[in-house]
Amino acid sequence: ELREAFRLYDKEGNGYISTDVMREILAELDETLSSEDLDAMIDEIDADGSGTVDFEEFMGVMT
Rank of each mutant, 00 (worst) to 15 (best):
E57W: 06
V61Y: 14
I45V: 09
D30Q: 07
L26Q: 00
L2R: 02
T32H: 10
R3V: 13
R7W: 13
D48A: 07
S34H: 05
A47N: 08
I45N: 01
T19V: 13
E31H: 15
T63G: 10
V21L: 13
D10Y: 05
Y9G: 02
E31C: 12
D48S: 10
F55C: 04
T32R: 09
V53A: 02
V53G: 01
G51E: 03
G51I: 01
K11E: 08
D37R: 10
S50K: 13
S50M: 09
S34K: 07
E56C: 11
M59R: 10
A27E: 06
L8E: 14
S50H: 07
M59F: 13
D54Q: 10
D46F: 05
L38A: 02
M59S: 10
M62L: 09
D37I: 10
D37L: 09
R7H: 15
K11I: 11
L26P: 00
S50Y: 05
L8T: 12
A47C: 14
D20I: 12
V21Y: 07
T52P: 01
V61C: 10
A5M: 15
A27D: 02
A47R: 13
A27R: 14
D30W: 13
I45G: 02
E44Q: 13
T52R: 11
D39P: 01
M62W: 08
G13Q: 07
M62V: 07
D30V: 08
S35L: 09
E28T: 12
E28Y: 11
Y9D: 04
I45F: 05
G15I: 03
I25Q: 01
V61I: 13
G60F: 14
S34E: 05
K11L: 12
G15L: 03
I45Y: 04
E56L: 11
T52L: 10
E36Q: 12
F55P: 01
A27L: 10
S35P: 12
S35I: 10
T32V: 03
K11N: 08
E57Q: 15
D10P: 00
V61H: 08
E56I: 12
D10A: 03
D48Y: 06
V61A: 10
D48V: 07
S35Q: 13
